[in-house]
Amino acid sequence: MLFTPALKPATLVQRYKRFLADVVTPEGETLTLHCPNTGAMTGCATPGDTVWYSTSSNIKRKYPHTWEITQTAAGDYICVNTLRANQLVKEAITLDLIPELCGYNSLKSEVKYGAENSRIDFMLQAEDRPECYIEVKSVTLAERDNGYFPDAVTLRGQKHLRELISVAAAGKRAVLLFAVLHSAIGRFSPARHIDLKYAQLLNEAQKQGVEVLAYKAELSADNMTLRSALPVTL
């Protein structure tokens, strides 16, 4: 995924009201960015870090600039725009960069399913195999080289696990794909210390046939590509 037009850098002053962040450009101008991330963003929003932002051509937007990537003082890149996770996964599936998800000839997005009125991120179909339901989660929480999800208690995430368990029970493929969007992360685990119920439910989901994958993106201020499988420890 190539950023076109190119992202621009600024220095983070503060994130506030969840969806807003103030930055200062290299020219000294203060801008307010839209922050497309509702999570805690632990370690991703330290004042003084470099923010890389995009600019929309939509003149009706109140905040035309969007916070895309954080570059930390340690030099790590973190994609904080959670919308990018699905875009990266879709691109990777289309380019056959995820071996576990190759061999399908149809990809649909945001398909309604389940008893709890959910929408699956992606459904893959082929004539010679069961449908494949894929739920995508963005991972940005890092402790040393360990990546964790979630970064806050997630009732929505727990619901998605229950839905995937039902899909697997019906004889279809159910896949939970963690898109790791932090360059320092080398392995993945559920965040038991943050949401124990989610971690327990994830372990049960795997036992019930839900496939758990973690793929890491190669990140820079120019482009992103999801291509490297990471070890998963439940």
Rank of each mutant, 00 (worst) to 15 (best):
L2A: 11
K8I: 00
A10R: 01
T11F: 07
V13P: 08
R18S: 10
F19C: 11
A21S: 09
D22T: 07
V24N: 14
P26A: 00
P36M: 08
N37T: 08
T42V: 10
A45N: 15
T46I: 15
G48S: 10
D49V: 07
S54E: 15
S54L: 01
R61G: 06
K62T: 09
Y63G: 07
H65K: 14
E68N: 13
E68G: 04
I69A: 06
G75H: 11
D76L: 04
D76V: 04
D76K: 04
N81M: 02
Q87N: 14
Q87C: 07
K90T: 12
A92W: 03
A92F: 04
I93N: 02
G103W: 08
G103I: 03
N105H: 15
L107N: 14
R119T: 06
F122I: 02
L124Q: 07
D128E: 13
R129H: 13
R129P: 08
P130M: 12
E131V: 15
K137T: 13
K137C: 04
S138N: 14
T140F: 07
F149A: 03
F149I: 01
L155Y: 11
R156Q: 12
K159G: 04
A170I: 07
L181P: 01
L181Q: 03
S183Q: 01
A184R: 15
I185R: 01
G186N: 09
D195H: 03
L196R: 03
A199V: 03
L202M: 09
V210G: 07
L219M: 08
N223E: 08
T225D: 15
S228C: 03
L234Y: 09
